[in-house]
């Protein structure tokens, strides 16, 4: 039982104009992993590899204790997958889809499905093609959630939802991990949602994982310092500084290796400290991506 729910190691996949390079990811039971990246970074391709819809060129892919793509049938029985391009039948209703999934999936929870219809404010008898974009997303999520799979893999589950619907969806994801055996992986470029509910975070850019770790540590080790550099004083080097901008006496330094006592080095050099600020996950994400792109270009 101690094996991670998801384990990716050294995963590579090359396309004519895009390449996933050395992808390593881990998700343990009872946790939510937020997978963050710009458009085209490789989020969807990685999720498709986890569903064996795309086969990796090399590397290890283990999901729910099964090796993919070889044991995909066994693994998929306990995975709920939702992505935007997953089509429901336009001429059929949500109720028709619910009956279909109920017949195919032994774990289907009809009472929970009915409750979700109410919470998501859906009309089961309506034809899918008459649904709004947000309603389609909620319908697809409902079909995945009501199977009560051990692993949910959701590609941009909150994109295109109004604030109330987003709130309802996040509540259901949090409800999933009340059961310590279950886990959720969701991709998003909405860093706010990720910051709110994720236990683990992975950043991807241009086909590479650029940083990963548990959310609390992530937020803890990033700081922005507003400094006053008097004439004749040089700004000393400090750990983990990835960005420094100066204007007159003012310097703004961003570090990803903050620890208690970090400021002491500046104070000792005669630099005044105006403020030490935490960063939002969005600021951290942008800083990480920009830093990595600069490093790769250099």
């Amino acid at each position: 039982m101690s094996e991670p729910v998801i384990l990716l190691d050294g995963v590579e996949k090359t396309y004519p104009y895009f390449r996933l390079t050395n992808i390593a990811l881990q998700l343990d039971a009872g946790q939510i992993l937020g997978f963050v990246g710009p458009n085209g970074a490789g989020k969807s391709t990685t999720l498709r590899i986890l569903m064996a819809m795309v086969q990796q060129d090399r590397g290890t892919v283990r999901v729910l204790g099964r090796s993919l793509p070889r044991e995909q049938a066994a693994a998929k029985q306990d995975i709920g997958f939702v992505s935007e391009d997953m089509r429901l039948h336009g001429s059929e209703s949500l109720a028709w889809h619910m009956r279909l999934v109920a017949d195919l999936c032994p774990g289907w929870d009809a009472a929970y499905a009915t409750a979700l219809v109410g919470r998501f404010n859906l009309h089961p008898e309506q034809q899918v093609r008459a649904l709004s974009h947000g309603e389609r997303i909620k319908a697809a999520l409902l079909l995945a959630l009501a199977r009560r799979p051990r692993l949910l893999i959701l590609d941009e589950p909150t994109t295109g939802l109004d604030p109330v619907a987003r709130h309802e969806v996040l509540a259901e994801l949090m409800d999933v991990v009340q059961d310590e055996r279950r886990a959720v992986l969701f991709s998003s470029h909405n860093t706010h949602d990720v910051e709110q509910i994720s236990d683990q975070i992975a950043f991807i850019d241009r086909g590479r994982i650029v940083d990963t770790g548990d959310k609390e540590t992530f937020l803890d080790r990033w700081r922005r310092l507003r400094l006053d550099v008097p004439p004749g004083v040089t700004l000393p080097a400090a750990a983990g500084v990835i960005d420094t901008s100066t204007s007159g006496r003012q310097a703004i330094v961003t570090t990803r290796a903050y620890a208690p006592g970090f400021e002491a080095g500046y104070a000792a050099a005669g630099v005044g400290i105006h403020a030490v600020e935490r960063l939002t996950l969005e600021e951290i994400f942008v800083a990480t991506v920009m830093h990595n792109r600069r490093e790769r270009a250099a």
């Binding site: 946790q31 709130h167 409800d175 991990v177 310590e180 709110q196 509910i197 994720s198 236990d199 609390e216």
Partner: peptide, 17 residues
């Protein structure tokens, strides 16, 4: 921890901390 996390809609790891 898990009930409070669900109630507040914040990460389990945050409540744990």
């Amino acid at each position: 921890i898990r009930a409070l996390a669900a109630g507040l809609q914040v990460s389990v790891i945050t409540v744990k901390r």
